[in-house]
Amino acid sequence: MIEIKNISKRYGNHLALDDISLTINDGEITGFLGTNGAGKSTLMNIITGYISMTEGTILIDGIDSLEDPEKVKKKIGYLPELPPLYMDMTVAEYLKFVCKLKHIPVKQIPLEMEKKMAQVKIEHVRNRLIKNLSKGYKQRVGLAQAILGNPSLLILDEPTVGLDPREIIEVRKLIQEISKNCTIIISSHILSEISTICSKVMILDKGRHIVTAAPNELIEKMNNTTQLHIRVKGDEDAIQKALHKLEGITHIKKLGNYEEHTVDLLIVSEHGIDIREVLSVYLVTNHFPIIMMKNYDVSLEDIFLQLTSSERGE
């Protein structure tokens, strides 16, 4: 279990992390979500022991990271945003070096390397210089070094950034495979990635903790209204005026004009009230033909923007 308690980090006068607390249970995949500069990498660097916190404590399986850093580091595998690779080494040389760095017994090194290379599918590039590999393969080598020695906590900082779509899918698959054996913390600003991989999401903004919940819980929490996207033909002002008279509608927002003489509107109604039938009859009766009507699903993107902008007072 990982317990992050009241972590703050200051760089001079700049507060990079402000009183962050979080508990992660064994086997969970937790996503750190935030825009660039939100503090995701700083928090990860603190957990791994690369930098130190200004205040707070981190306990990994009950061990304080400041009291016994080497023991804590043995439990962690880390893939930073830029994989820490030595370009002049071959893949095999590099992984052997990492095995030794992690104090894996010499006799176990060949087997451990084989296992991990097979797991991330890099056996066929073992004798190639790292500098000659594609970005996707470099990321795999980075991932292999992180999982060497079977760490109980794996920390991945934006593991799919800069990869092509095929590589992204493959790396995600790999992460899901690895997650069967350890606890994972993953950071990203790609919301779909977090929602597909993670069982828990922590949203950070400007170093502050905004919310922690399961992705579907977040959607459920925010999705307390029924929203419809409609495209109606007719005079824009007249349509809006007419809709304001209809009961059950709490909010109307213009989305744009995508076809001639039409307007796209977002209609928000009270939670649990299905106004589709009433709305269509009402608009047609008022001589405003409906060209299109569909449910407007709240995505994690909407929630993220809503939460971070409300925190900023926008």
């Binding site: 791994t48 022991g49 080497e70 580091k73 962690i76 930073p80 820490p84 760095l101």
Partner: peptide
């Protein structure tokens, strides 16, 4: 410069 210090300083070595 190459950020490989992240590998060294997060490894279980002082």
């Amino acid at each position: 410069k190459n950020r490989t210090d992240q590998l060294l300083f997060t490894s279980p070595n002082s």
